[in-house]
Design a binder for these strands. Structure first.
Lengths: 223, 223
DNA sequence: TCAAAGTCTTAAGGAGGACTTAAGGTGTCC
DNA sequence: GGACACCTTAAGTCCTCCTTAAGACTTTGA
């Protein structure tokens, strides 16, 4: 039976991205674009809730408080607010995890995976592949011990590839998930980002081209 | 009792390919070349629907939305559109799976199989046969642990043979399903691809010639 | 064994996908 | 408002790989 995640997120872009990511990872996803209280039936039919706290109208904390009256379903909280008072309130009210926006979709996925105890897509901790070390949480990359400065998009693309070592990731998916969705010429833009990424990483064939498909991260990943 | 799949696909080439694949795998296939709403009787008489979203005239999403009013039949959605907004909409409207075009016919088959035969959780894993490992999802092949670089067509042909170990696959079918349909001299082209494939795989008789018929994958497939 | 049909191999051509560089534009920080 | 960083676009070049062609080789059936 496929595990079911309820996503409550009003922002279309973020919601789309998260839903897509979870879906691809094999979860069934129900996406509510408005904040409203979770009924007991829904709560018992999903295995996890991803809840954005900064919803218009309903306060996310109210939803959280309410659902805790009758359900123990794990709730992973998203918030643009980074102040720890808000965070601790959420955790005290029964949230199981807290992710600040902006976040890497893969980081969220890793946390969902961890919470549901599935075989992890990646192990916790930095990813290491040869001279490369990628720390998803810190959004930092080191190459031969030296810190490498990557832009947000570059890091996102690299991370997306690195958490799926040996697997081809399509150009279309990368464009959808890591480039501006409101622009048109995404395919060429992706070329440029990959090109720069390779140059910064010494161009040792770490990112392979899969002709006609996309790219693949090469190198054995040792947690 | 043979399981019945309803295929809604306007593109003749793709439709033929998919229908053929499913039929060979033992499914009864009904193929609609036009998008129109699915009546309750039809919905209840098939075990799965493969629905192309990019139909002329009727919007595939409307068909999906409509059928969900009265039926829980699994719907596997095909689309040439790779933008995830469309995809997410489809999934929210009740699609059970989503495959982007272009796709490997065998991948589609694997997903249909997964949904109808195997009680989930087990995603189609890599095919292993002796020193050879073929990962359909990752579009990757390893030989004696070493990654082997195959082109898209080569990979498609190998996969088509490998998922039918010991079974002769006709040249005509391979040409129809894995070569450019707009070209003429397909038979000779197939020769070339098979030749290259053998060379890359060490030419250990993995791909046998069945004279006058086609080719056969040799080796016991585990997993 | 011989002829005919089928298959294998190598090399070359061309179409389309991918890479690189440079420049434009947008947003952010001070 | 100005400087800066960064994403995107454009354009030209490079390169991969599907296809075709041609000839050698293998199998089949008489």
């Amino acid at each position: 039976m496929r595990q079911h995640v309820l996503l409550i997120e009003d922002d279309a872009t973020v919601g789309r991205q998260v839903a897509d990511h979870l879906q691809r990872a094999g979860y069934a996803v129900t996406w509510w674009t408005e904040g409203c209280l979770i009924d007991p039936h829904t709560a018992s039919s999903v295995q996890l809730v991803v809840l954005d706290l900064t919803l218009p109208g309903t306060d996310g904390l109210d939803i959280l408080k309410d659902v805790r009256c009758f359900s123990e379903v794990p709730v992973l909280v998203l918030s643009a607010r980074t102040d720890s008072s808000y965070k601790t309130r959420a955790l005290r009210l029964g949230a199981d995890d807290f992710v600040s926006k902006p976040f890497w979709p893969d980081e969220l996925l890793a946390r969902v995976d961890a919470r549901l105890r599935r075989p992890l897509l990646r192990r916790p901790g930095p990813i290491e592949a040869g001279p490369l070390r990628i720390d998803l949480e810190a959004a930092a990359v080191h190459f031969n011990g030296e810190p490498v400065h990557l832009t947000a998009v570059e890091f996102g693309i690299l991370a997306a590839l690195a958490v799926r070592p040996g697997q081809a990731v399509t150009r279309g998916w990368l464009v959808d998930n890591h480039l501006d969705p409101h622009r048109a010429g995404g395919a060429r833009t992706l070329d440029v980002h990959v090109s720069r990424l390779r140059k910064k990483l010494g161009d040792q064939g770490i990112i392979e081209t899969v002709f006609g498909i996309g790219y693949r991260f090469r190198g054995s990943v040792t947690s």
